[in-house]
Design a protein around this nucleic acid. Sequence first.
DNA 1: CCATCTTTGTGCACACGTTCACAAACGCAT
DNA 2: ATGCGTTTGTGAACGTGTGCACAAAGATGG
Lengths: 288, 288
Amino acid sequence: MAIGRPSSSSSQTPDPGAARRTSRARGIPEATVARLPLYLRALTALSERSVPTVSSEELAAAAGVNSAKLRKDFSYLGSYGTRGVGYDVEYLVYQISRELGLTQDWPVVIVGIGNLGHALANYGGFASRGFRVAALLDADPNVVGTAAAGLPVRHMDELEAIVAAQHVSIGVITTPPGAAQQVCDRLVEAGVTSILNFAPTVLTVPDGVDVRKVDLSIELQILAFHEQRKAGDEPAAGDSVLDRAPGPVRAAAAKLRRAAGGGKAAEQAKSAPTGKGPEDDLSAVMPA
Amino acid sequence: MAIGRPSSSSSQTPDPGAARRTSRARGIPEATVARLPLYLRALTALSERSVPTVSSEELAAAAGVNSAKLRKDFSYLGSYGTRGVGYDVEYLVYQISRELGLTQDWPVVIVGIGNLGHALANYGGFASRGFRVAALLDADPNVVGTAAAGLPVRHMDELEAIVAAQHVSIGVITTPPGAAQQVCDRLVEAGVTSILNFAPTVLTVPDGVDVRKVDLSIELQILAFHEQRKAGDEPAAGDSVLDRAPGPVRAAAAKLRRAAGGGKAAEQAKSAPTGKGPEDDLSAVMPA
DNA sequence: CCATCTTTGTGCACACGTTCACAAACGCAT
DNA sequence: ATGCGTTTGTGAACGTGTGCACAAAGATGG
């Protein structure tokens, strides 16, 4: 089985209109942009094995997509294939890299050096694609001064200077959720215009700033949903015949629920997981 | 500015048909499922502040979506609101939790205890939503026996026994990409039917197994794309007037490229990033 | 009981994304 | 040159997702 939508955990502000205006300016659909990195990865693997050309069918298989989709995606970039032959691997690697902006150097700051920050600092995938960790930052004095991935952790107060000096335009937030918005504001103020947010919080940013979100727990919840379906479970026994009934019956039920302060169903929900506050999600991970 | 599609980094097999068959079985669109965790997070926050009811407008703002979309999403679950009033927070928390399958306990194994594995093991967001780390596993003898997040790291060989004993149906892969498929096969063999993959690899799984993918570097690449656009850069100078030209001109250009083994463009691409192999992405992160 | 105000639930139109299917383009052998 | 097999590039059909805008439903006050 394969779960649906090729997409799901990122881009916190779902405004396709805005996206369209931005990226379709020269015509590349957002969905295509999201797949380009996949193709690029598959292509680089082929390139290392010195494969000279590849057909849309083969490449699609390697990238885990359908070949028609791949061809259409490439058609937005231009006509880079040769009919009867396929695509020149090296050439395509270059074209996609260029389109994604990976032929230039992108300095990146990572804010919040807990376990996740560490993992990202060490993440080879960054360095190998034009991204360079300009600095690791944290607010916790106990963390500042330690080293991660060969780089010293510096104090948040240096942020503005670092961003200015190295022309950093991309920031990664791996702080606890409570600190995220504050850090975000400061990044934006300092001049960062693209933010990758790992904290489970909705960030508010001014126009002109892009935010993408990666939420570790959302993915797991989506899996749980499908897993539940597989088990054949109707979502649960529940008290819910009323809920699907139309008309006055439902109204009465709603009234009852409110009167009872949520009813027994709600209490059941409250006691179900650990009693811990769910918005503290990352606090265990990030010291600062 | 807000980047488009609310979605983008997960679900490695983009087969909406299959997804539809699975989740629309009782009518909930995949896009809606992906947003339910967002609503749930916002609602739990309200619940902690003891807010009794919330309007679609308020909740939508808190979750970072449009209110019409939110109402439509909820309408797939049933009619849980009260006109003129809004939604009962506690009741909605329960309904969404139930729909997502979070009212039951989901034991999870994490395979590959490097930095990322550590981060996930410590991730409060798991435990607080019905997920329980059943075991941490690694193949590296140096890692086995150490502790992470209060749990001992056990050897891969115990996998089958653990999965069977604790009825684990969800596995998380945080190994280097080279080991991912092998680990995946073993998880599936042991009985795991949902996999969350952090390794930058396309996993092949039999029917009936769900895979979702979280790719840290893809998100960054998408940001770079938009950042490049903001800079007003046409993707690069390039050699590319030919590429958009139709007809025989293009054909000739393609021929030339192939003859030259990729041409100067390709070499430029090859030397652009660090010379490191891109599929080793996670090797620095994960010891095993 | 009626009038008024608020907010939900949803029909509808449109935009976006995916897939099919096929003609045009190319390499290659004869 | 010509014909054959292969593979691209894309027009068109379809399905999904989004957002508007409004009627229906309930709350509230007189």
